[in-house]
Design a protein around this nucleic acid. Structure first.
Length: 463
RNA sequence: UCCUCGAUAGCUCAACGGUAGAGCAACCGGCUGUUAACCGGUAGGUUGUAGGUUCGAAUCCUACUCGGGGAGCCA
């Protein structure tokens, strides 16, 4: 007999009632009396557990009463209505086979653990309620993103993880090399000789797939990337990881407005898909992790995101009467405290801020007609901060080259990127969405380390 | 990287210059419907590391390591 999953039991409550079934899973808790006891198992298919009732008629009754949390079992018996209030049904066991015993020093207790402690046992934490919820939601959210783009005519591009462009400008990079670090070859100038390296040049892990995505955008019209991204910044915050996943759509024959509409539609789609498909997990997180989670997500689905220009945002902050630690001045980048005021206090919902001064944004962003701002957009969200950063790209070759000169970039390094403008370049735009930041928003988890299976942060690559 | 707070039993915490404790977990026993089960008992510690002050340090000081929060960088 094949094992029935707990997910199926809940999906078709009537079908299995008073039937003999087989289930398997891992013990969450055992409550034993003299002649009978209860075992709750989680089989990994569903957020909720199944209660198994066993009694002294089972040959291994003594063994079962001593069973520790974490052990793996296979149980056979009849599914019956449960007299208890906390579950609709339970399994009246006729036999329970212990498949894998958990040693008594199993570190997960029935009581609540701190997230800090659970990070030290990242290999066991998916067995807890919270992480079970978070990582099932992560899986469903990733699927929702692919589904949204695929159903809207986007082509998924796998951009390279190892990159040869050494000046992507989005942050410090991790070097990729096969050189023998104990015997580094240097040329006559004393500089490391990368011609001896695997690729014959300096290579790094990607910090963004955007430049490559732009190339494919000029062939497929609408593309997106969804892959790992690496930043070697020494960032010690709850919102940064050295390895994270990023979604980067790129659309042709489109500008900043279409770009923002796309971002808003995608976010709303993912939120509603996750709410529809992981409601047990969302309810759990709403009661144990963030009591305002469901209300906030409902609000996101049903409200239009706010739009302000950088210039307007500066005015709002100046008129707020607030005393900020860093004074607001046009031309200076917005501080976290400013962003929080705008999105949390002033609008209380996600806000697009557009048209930033060119000096504080990347070289590839399209120059506006005023000559001092660029067609950039950041999406700020309450609690998370910057969730999306994007722009309309500079498609005019002469403008782009002028901007690169001003910023001291070496145009030879970007020859193929410039070629995109040279051969049929058109208006286009795109953005980068940090997948983990989206997950924090979707789950209410406040530390990025708790939405990544085995997080990589400065001084942390155990597991 | 900077600022700030912290590190005591497997976990969560107490003891704040004078013999290191509790709850939970573990282990042993009891209990006929439990569900953070309950009741009784047992065991569990070089107080993050290295120095220093003191008759005496978990407690005060210094450095380091690791962790939380804030800032910067950004997604």
């Amino acid at each position: 007999m094949d094992a029935v999953t707990v997910k199926e039991l809940y999906a078709e409550k009537g079908k299995y009632l008073n039937q003999n079934i087989l289930v398997n899973g891992w013990v969450r808790t055992v409550r034993s009396s003299k002649t009978f006891g209860f075992i709750e198992i989680n089989d990994g298919t569903f957020f909720l557990n199944l209660q198994i009732v066993y009694d002294e008629n089972l040959a291994n009754f003594q063994e079962l009463s001593r069973l520790g949390a974490g052990s793996a079992i296979i149980a056979a018996g009849m599914l019956v209505k449960s007299p208890g209030a906390k579950q609709p049904f339970e399994l009246k066991a006729e036999s329970i086979e212990v498949q894998g015993l958990a040693a008594p020093d199993y570190p997960l207790q029935k009581k609540r653990h701190t997230f800090e402690f659970l990070r030290t046992i990242a290999h066991l934490r998916p067995r807890t309620n919270t992480f079970s919820a978070v990582f099932r939601i992560r899986s469903v959210a990733a699927y929702a993103i692919h589904k949204f783009f695929q159903e809207n005519g986007f082509v998924h591009v796998h951009t390279p993880i190892i990159t040869g462009s050494d000046a992507e400008g989005a942050g410090d990079m991790f070097r990729v090399s096969t050189l023998d670090f104990d015997r580094i070859m240097r040329n006559e100038k004393g500089v490391v000789d990368f011609t001896k390296d695997f690729f014959g040049k300096e290579t790094n892990l990607t910090v963004s797939g955007q430049l490559e995505a732009e190339a494919y955008c000029m062939a497929f019209n609408k593309v997106y990337t969804f892959g790992p991204t690496f930043r070697a910044e020494n960032s010690n915050t709850p919102r940064h990881a050295a390895e994270f996943w990023m979604i980067e759509p790129e659309i042709a024959f489109a500008g900043l407005t279409e770009n923002m509409d796309l971002a808003e539609a995608m976010l709303k789609y993912v939120v509603s898909y996750v709410l529809e498909n992981t409601i047990e997990e969302m309810r759990f997180l709403n009661s144990f992790v963030d009591k305002s989670l469901l209300a906030r997500l409902e609000n996101v689905m049903h409200s239009d995101f706010a739009h302000v220009t950088y210039t307007e945002a500066v005015e709002i902050l100046k008129k707020s009467g607030r005393q900020f630690e860093y004074p607001v001045e046009w031309g200076v980048d917005l501080q976290t405290e400013h962003e929080r005021y705008i999105t949390e206090k002033h609008f209380s919902k996600p806000v697009f801020i557009t048209d930033y001064p060119k000096e504080i944004k990347a070289f590839y962003m399209r120059m506006n007609d005023d000559g001092r701002t660029v067609a950039a957009m950041d999406l700020l969200t309450p609690g998370i901060g910057e969730l999306i950063g994007g722009s309309q790209r500079e498609e005019r070759l002469d403008y782009l080259e002028k901007r690169m000169d001003e910023m001291g970039l070496n145009k030879e390094d970007y020859w193929w990127y410039l070629d995109i403008r040279k051969y049929g370049g058109v208006r286009h735009a795109g953005f980068g969405l940090g997948f983990e930041r989206l997950l924090m928003y979707l789950t209410g988890m406040t530390n990025i380390r708790d939405v990544v299976s085995f997080p990589r942060t400065p001084k942390n690559a155990e597991f």
